[in-house]
């Protein structure tokens, strides 16, 4: 006589959390990269000049383009590696929230000017 099938857990998740974690973490990395690039462009003339991708917009064009490229690249890599995995979401979210909060702070001129 075969044993009865195991009772499914309540509210089973059809998807692992890896894909969501990849999206969350990469967005925070992109935002943080933008704030770092902005500070670098503001403080270093050579970086400032190098980030002028579109002259009428000035270094803002390079700062945002680089940050977006890094965001998309990071997202792609993390999505590829994590999409079928269950990751430590608490830790990932803590890192993401910290980076996002730092991004807001580092783009605030009185704080950015401290560097």
């Amino acid at each position: 006589m075969s044993s009865p099938p195991p009772t499914p857990p309540p509210n089973p998740s059809a998807l692992t959390n890896g894909s969501g974690a990849a999206a969350i973490l990469s967005a925070a990395i992109g935002a943080f990269a933008l704030s770092i690039c902005a500070i670098a462009a503001d403080k270093m003339p050579s970086v400032n000049a190098a980030l002028v991708f579109y002259k009428p917009t000035g270094p803002l064009s390079g700062v945002t383009t680089l940050a977006i490229l890094l965001w998309i690249l990071t997202w792609g890599i993390l999505e590829f590696r994590w999409r079928k995995r269950t990751v430590a979401l608490g830790f990932t979210c803590s890192v993401a929230f910290t980076l996002l909060a730092l991004s807001f702070l580092l783009t605030f001129p009185p704080i950015a000017d401290l560097f």
Partner: peptide, 22 residues
């Protein structure tokens, strides 16, 4: 501040939309 912080809006909402749709 505006010229940089504004970009967090599309980055964040794109992430939100992706995760919700997924």
């Amino acid at each position: 501040w505006k010229e940089h912080v504004a970009w967090f809006a599309p980055i964040s909402i794109t992430t939100v939309a992706f995760v919700f749709i997924r």
